[in-house]
Simulated assay, not measured.
Amino acid sequence: MTLTKAHIVEKLFAENLFTKAESAQIVETLFEIVKQTLENGEDVLISGFGKFSVKEKNQRRGRNPQTGEPILLAPRRVVTFKCSGVLRDKINAGD
């Protein structure tokens, strides 16, 4: 099952610390802060979870898969994620 924002809100609400509306606002605010930080080209480091970074991709040659025609792909920015050692260990502990 995929974890969605709605699932996160429900789990936060289930802890009985916040109302459902407050839980939704907290989750939305958190994701907005993360998005704004990444838009500014800054990294987001969450201890024990991982690091989100913005990387620059240079212009490169590619091809249209339907026609085989060569094309130039524009330079762009992409978000990468590297998980922390703690998270990696937890994921691999299930083996």
Results as ranks from 00 to 15, higher is better:
residue 65 P to S: 11
residue 66 Q to L: 15
residue 61 R to Y: 00
residue 67 T to R: 15
residue 56 E to Y: 07
residue 57 K to V: 02
residue 76 R to N: 00
residue 72 L to G: 10
residue 60 R to V: 01
residue 50 G to E: 04
residue 49 F to W: 11
residue 44 V to Y: 07
residue 85 G to I: 10
residue 65 P to Y: 11
residue 64 N to T: 10
residue 41 G to Y: 11
residue 51 K to D: 10
residue 58 N to M: 01
residue 58 N to S: 04
residue 45 L to T: 14
residue 46 I to F: 14
residue 75 P to M: 03
residue 45 L to W: 03
residue 82 K to I: 03
residue 76 R to F: 03
residue 69 E to N: 08
residue 58 N to E: 05
residue 59 Q to K: 15
residue 74 A to S: 15
residue 53 S to V: 05
residue 47 S to I: 11
residue 90 K to Q: 11
residue 72 L to F: 10
residue 48 G to M: 07
residue 52 F to P: 13
residue 74 A to W: 07
residue 49 F to N: 04
residue 59 Q to A: 14
residue 84 S to R: 02
residue 43 D to M: 04
residue 43 D to I: 05
residue 54 V to E: 00
residue 43 D to T: 10
residue 49 F to E: 02
residue 56 E to V: 10
residue 73 L to W: 08
residue 48 G to Y: 13
residue 82 K to Q: 04
residue 61 R to N: 09
residue 42 E to S: 15
residue 41 G to F: 09
residue 89 D to C: 06
residue 62 G to D: 08
residue 52 F to R: 02
residue 83 C to S: 15
residue 52 F to A: 09
residue 45 L to E: 12
residue 66 Q to D: 06
residue 81 F to S: 03
residue 64 N to L: 10
residue 50 G to T: 01
residue 49 F to L: 11
residue 61 R to G: 13
residue 39 E to A: 07
residue 61 R to P: 01
residue 45 L to R: 12
residue 43 D to R: 01
residue 67 T to Y: 14
residue 81 F to C: 01
residue 65 P to A: 06
residue 41 G to S: 08
residue 45 L to G: 06
residue 90 K to H: 12
residue 38 L to G: 03
residue 49 F to K: 09
residue 67 T to P: 03
residue 83 C to F: 08
residue 70 P to N: 09
residue 85 G to T: 15
residue 47 S to M: 02
